[in-house]
Design a protein around this nucleic acid. Structure first.
Lengths: 163, 163
DNA sequence: TGACATTACTTGGCATGCCATGCATACTGT
DNA sequence: ACAGTATGCATGGCATGCCAAGTAATGTCA
């Protein structure tokens, strides 16, 4: 019993799929709203939402290379190249060639970025709190687990469908 | 007890926020994976993922205007202008000025798009099934409800923070 | 060691999204 | 009827994401 196909009228037997039934649609919509809510709260600090996950990764471990950052936040290296350049432009990181491997670029937080750490995390928590307002803690745990499972399922799919 | 602030070491008292704790990060990641999985499955039919929700809306009710389509799928009108043009380019819709209101453009499905309906919905269902593989039905219902609640919470926020 | 493969990053092309602006068309109230 | 407002769409600018292809540096192995 895999899925809910909603038949249209009996006469036409048209196959329908309400947008609310589609995980892609719901998740995409929520993702855009979360990004917007974060953008509203961090713009004044000169940080873009697309740099947020990268900052969190660097807060945990500074000096990562671009490819390490890419894997850490699951973003394509070509996207990371642009994002890191924007972060440099915005005074959040510096880029310096690695000494052990001249292909690599070491990304290091600026003092400014480190000073923003608590503030930025506070803003992210605000967004999280807003999103989960009125939701039961047990349900939140379920959602966390299911989202992780779905991510794992889809990552699996990507790997076994190389191109 | 709103949120889980994870303190770093006792000495530095650095505020940390693992990416896995952030709804924005998880939901964004899942959204990108779902979009990619759909893209892989509908590219051969000449349909882009960014057109999918619009097609679903038009399958339910053909001849919507761009602004009606925008509200239906919660996409900015300026984005819709581009998307509809791509859909026209790809032979999925036609655009014709409305007779009642010359400002409006009526978007109508082509025969080709209508012929793709079942196939496309089948592909979306494949993605949904893949994503929810191994997940309990009761848990899925919880997730659906919580996502809807979060979307409502954030929509609410956007409205009361006009600018 | 020298050919071949791999890795790190960049670049170009494109899709998808938002905001701010501009223009044409409609609507409203006096 | 006309001024002022609102609506529908297009456009420019930008952010964020992907893939494909190119270049430089590194690694591998006969």
């Amino acid at each position: 019993m895999p899925s809910e196909i909603i038949a249209g009228s009996e006469t036409t037997s048209t196959v329908q799929l309400p947008r609310e039934e589609s995980w892609g649609y719901q998740v995409n919509h929520l993702a855009r709203l979360l990004e917007g809510a974060l953008r509203d709260r961090i713009a004044r600090h000169g940080v873009l939402p697309g740099a947020f996950a990268q900052l969190l990764a660097l807060f945990e471990r500074d000096g990562l290379s671009q490819s390490e950052l890419s894997s850490a936040v699951h973003i394509d290296p070509s996207t990371m190249a642009l994002t890191v350049r924007r972060m440099e432009r915005d005074g959040l990181v510096t880029r310096s060639p690695s000494l052990r491997d001249r292909r690599q670029t070491e990304i290091r937080l600026t003092r400014h970025a480190r000073e923003l750490q608590s503030t930025l995390i506070g803003r992210a928590i605000e967004v999280n709190d807003l999103a989960k307002k009125g939701v039961d803690d047990a349900d939140l745990a379920v959602v966390r687990r299911v989202l992780a499972q779905m991510i794992a399922n889809l990552l699996n799919d990507v790997e076994r469908a190389p191109s």
